[in-house]
């Protein structure tokens, strides 16, 4: 009895596995004859227990019938699918209909550009940090050698924050440079870091100015860092982001927390120079402010606007598009 049952199970499995791999109508017909034909294996099996006791015979009969039915169904569906695929292979098929939608989202162009710049600097050995947007005046200005009531402060039109409890003189940081101070206060050189983040200025919005924007600050401090290293590093960065052919140049510019101060322009298409970032050697007064001896340590710092870099790179001509959050604008940045 048990051997019969086992045999039937085996037969079922064997048949099902065999038909799976058959491709031609001819082979399937052979399979049908082999298993379901008049002299096939199922008929053979029925023959094998026709002399048994009726109780056992009935049980095996019903089991065998189930198997037979199962194999017949297999046969039907296989023939059907074979016929169908025959038609498809020989007939018209529209491969051009759209696939089932599985739409991907997007990452905001500011964050993509930010990420791209961070990766570039990461390749050049910089770590990435972030810092507070609501900042104290001390870090935003004083420690960066930007005294109160100095016209240099006009470079940063500032949005001020009402006192929060005992914490006074708060600003929405007008640049990422306060993080230079925080990094230097909390870490021993050597330091190589870039700090991306949001900044705010009290200024009217137009095609190229936003009151709310993003910058990346960079800072290198060590014992033997000089202007020539700064040029080399920032050249290399420009080539990573804007292509191998990119040319860069430096001119003198003024930021109170660097000396000498510089501005880097790049030239990567149409032979025009585009201002990209401010830079310079960290001012000895700033080093003193964080307790580093300017006779031992030196370094350079730089800062660039992320939206500006994205506008140059992607050809966006109105900065206001960035934060209107319009679907058609955003979905382009896969």
């Amino acid at each position: 009895m048990n051997t019969n049952k086992t045999y039937l199970e085996k037969l079922k499995l064997e048949a099902a596995n065999t038909i799976e791999n058959l491709l031609s109508a001819e082979d399937i017909e052979t399979w049908r004859i082999n298993y379901l034909g008049r002299k096939g294996k199922i008929s053979e099996f029925f023959q094998s227990f026709k002399d048994m006791k009726s109780e056992e015979r009935n049980e095996l009969g019903s089991l065998a019938n189930n198997v037979k039915k199962f194999l017949e169904e297999l046969y039907d569906s296989k023939t059907k699918s074979l016929n169908k695929s025959d038609i498809q292979e020989s007939d018209f098929f529209d491969y051009s209909l759209p696939g089932t939608p599985n739409s991907a989202g997007s990452i905001h162009p500011t964050n993509q550009m930010m990420q791209e710049i961070c990766i570039a600097f990461n390749k050049l050995g910089f770590n990435i940090y972030e810092g507070p947007e609501i900042e104290s005046e001390k870090y935003a200005f004083d420690k960066l050698n930007i005294p109160t009531n100095h016209p240099a402060r006009d470079i940063w039109d500032t949005i001020w924050v009402k006192d929060v409890g005992d914490i006074k003189s708060l600003v929405l940081r007008p640049h990422t440079s306060p993080m230079q101070i925080r990094i230097m206060e909390n870490n021993e050189p050597p330091i190589r870091v870039v700090i991306p983040g949001k900044c705010y200025r009290y200024e009217a919005t137009d095609n190229t100015h936003e009151w709310h924007f993003h910058q990346i600050e960079g800072l290198v401090i060590d014992k033997n860092i000089n202007f020539s290293n700064m040029k080399s590093t920032l050249f290399e960065f420009a080539r990573i982001i804007f292509g191998e052919e990119t040319k860069a140049r430096f001119r003198c510019d003024f930021f109170p927390f660097v000396e000498p101060g510089a501005e880097m322009s790049i030239n990567f298409k149409e032979n025009t120079w585009l201002e990209l970032m401010g830079a310079g050697m960290v001012h000895p007064k700033v080093l003193n402010n964080v307790g580093l001896d300017p006779n031992i340590y030196s370094g350079f710092a730089f800062g660039l606007g992320i939206e500006r870099a994205a506008m140059i790179k992607y050809g966006i001509n109105n900065i206001r598009d960035f934060y209107a959050n319009d679907y058609q604008f955003l979905k382009q940045f896969k």
């Binding site: 991907a104 989202g105 997007s106 949001k198 709310h212 955003l330």
Partner: peptide, 12 residues
């Protein structure tokens, strides 16, 4: 992004 979400940046 992989789940189909579009990133926005709003004024805070």
């Amino acid at each position: 992004k992989a789940m189909g979400y579009i990133e926005v940046i709003n004024y805070p």
